[in-house]
Design a protein around this nucleic acid. Structure first.
Length: 277
DNA sequence: ACAGGATCCTGGGGGC
DNA sequence: TGCCCCCAGGATCCTG
């Protein structure tokens, strides 16, 4: 469930604590991960300084400093992944798959993921560069122009929900914020993308940005397992307009929120505020 | 070519 | 109370 706001929250927590630190050791557990850890990555990582902690869509990119450069440690939180700083010697929580020792000797970076939908891997410079470009992963929502979005919507018969979830269109939106953004834009999630008028495209683009910014200010949403820091959790789940609010009154018009399934995902909307033309 | 579906995984919740 | 089944979801691969 970590989407852009949750990942951004984690990155902002880690950045001041990790940047400038050196990796002094790597320990990866025996459980098989989605991308199996390769032993040769250890040599690529140990002795390297962490230059920048960044977010790209839902990906956490920890860039490595000289002597090589352009390579990185890449993390995706999947559904239940957590990247935390723990005191050295603190009890290891269940489902801890990787531990990175740091040169300050006080804290270590741990990757936990009960459901193992997440991913942690070393990323060589060419792949790191590709992740930065918009070739494989679409632009950050703030970089997306109305013209770009309009062009992408015009060339597909998919519904809006499916398009918003497509990371090649724009990076970082997942199931929760897709529903919330469509409510904000007053657009039905089942609307066929290519039928949008120009002003509706602009409304959608603004709504995505506005919802994400609001969620970042609230440190994301915590449902079951999202935490940043030790046990600090997001507060945006209290602001949901539609997600998870099936049969509850719309906060705008009191009409019961509807739930359906689109693009293989649970989808929530207000039938009154988000009508199909 | 494009769109939709299956797949991975496990804790938690609902139902009986 | 206890057990079982099903559900949640991002990215990727597969099928029609």
């Amino acid at each position: 469930m970590p989407e852009l706001p949750e990942v951004e929250t984690v990155v902002r927590m880690l950045r001041p604590r990790l940047e400038g630190r050196m990796l002094t050791g790597v320990h990866v557990g025996p459980r098989r991960l989605r991308v199996p850890w390769q032993r040769r990555w250890n040599a690529r990582l140990i002795g390297r300084r962490l230059a920048h902690v960044q977010r790209r869509g839902k990906w956490i990119v920890i860039d490595l400093a000289l002597p090589e450069s352009g390579d990185a440690l890449l993390v995706h939180l999947g559904m239940t992944g957590r990247l935390i700083l723990a005191e050295v010697g603190a009890p290891t929580a269940p489902h801890t798959h990787a531990v990175f020792h740091l040169d300050d000797g006080k804290q270590e970076l741990r990757f936990l993921d009960p459901r193992r939908f997440g991913l942690i891997r070393y990323l060589a410079a060419p792949e790191r560069a590709r992740l930065q470009s918009t070739a494989a992963l679409g632009p950050e929502p703030w970089q997306l122009t109305t013209a770009n979005l309009a062009a992408q919507l015009a060339r597909t018969r998919r519904c809006l929900k499916a398009v918003l979830l497509d990371q090649r269109v724009l990076a970082g939106v997942g199931n929760i914020y897709a529903d919330e953004a469509l409510f904000e834009a007053r657009l039905h999630p089942g609307r066929i993308a290519r039928t949008l008028a120009r002003q509706e495209v602009e409304r959608l683009r603004c709504a995505v940005v506005r919802v994400l910014e609001r969620a970042i200010r609230k440190h994301g949403s915590t449902i079951l397992t999202f935490y940043y820091g030790d046990d600090e959790h997001g507060e945006y789940q209290n602001e949901f307009r539609v997600y998870g609010r099936q049969d509850q009154p719309c906060r705008r018009c009191r009409t019961p929120i509807a739930a359906t399934r689109l693009a293989g995902r649970s989808t929530h909307y207000c039938p009154q505020c988000q009508p199909l033309p």
